[in-house]
Design a protein around this nucleic acid. Structure first.
Lengths: 119, 119
DNA sequence: ATGTTAATTAACTGATATGCTAAATAATTC
DNA sequence: GAATTATTTAGCATATCAGTTAATTAACAT
């Protein structure tokens, strides 16, 4: 699921669509496509990617197919990032500490903390 | 930048590499590749994707090229997603309200709240 | 029925992604 | 300097992506 979510978010057009939907709540295909310099079929495929990733949902009203955001996958992606963020930040702090240590005593390298790559 | 970041995160192998690095802090290519059923050249290209996206950095120690995480792009991605947090937090409230409304008066659907698409 | 509007599917192109094996580079060790 | 270890590049196959135009479906309006 994360695969499809991140892949969908990798395109600026698709991210902009989500931004529009976050703003408007609901919008039709042509309405969403308007800001982009792209053929409608081309744009339609972007929506399909978003839909397959579960990021948008489409209903039917007459000829229109109004789209809405489904934030679930965004939450999942955000949670994934949040889980690792703490670890990364902790690492980063440790790295800072390491650098400080190295500056004060250049002969004493930090193999104890990070493991020896040649091991 | 977000493009490359999200694209890099769209692959489970690459996410797992970041997870490993979050855990270990630093690791060599073969060490990182070990859990995966994949040729080393194939794996090396994944690292290249991560590096191009700025998610990892590589140094040199003898024949080894130890990798570390660079959390900057992850922070960017995380920040982008955070803008939508209100959306998924608000969603269930709105859905509850809508369902209650529909139960009390099934003919009156929720068009007023979201704008008329045919306009 | 006919035409109009909204949106998608079909069919094609060119670019990029992912995987492989085999060969090359780079540093180490004997 | 020859062999070993770590890693990347080259070259190739296949698949998916992003975009196009032309044709199609679906619903509405007259």
């Amino acid at each position: 699921m994360l695969d499809a979510t991140f892949a969908a978010l990798a395109d600026p057009t698709r991210r902009a669509v989500l931004a529009q939907l976050a703003d408007k709540g609901e919008a039709t295909v042509t309405e969403l496509a308007e800001p982009f310099d792209m053929s409608l079929p081309g744009f339609s495929r972007h929506l399909k990617v978003l839909e397959k990733a579960g990021l948008i949902e489409r209903s039917r009203q007459a000829q229109f197919r109004p789209c809405t955001i489904n934030p679930e996958p965004l939450k999942e992606a955000s949670d994934w990032l949040a889980d690792y963020r703490k670890l990364w930040e902790a690492r980063f702090d440790r790295l800072d500490a390491l650098l400080a240590e190295l500056q004060s005593d250049p002969t004493q390298t930090a193999k104890e903390d990070h493991g020896d790559p040649s091991k």
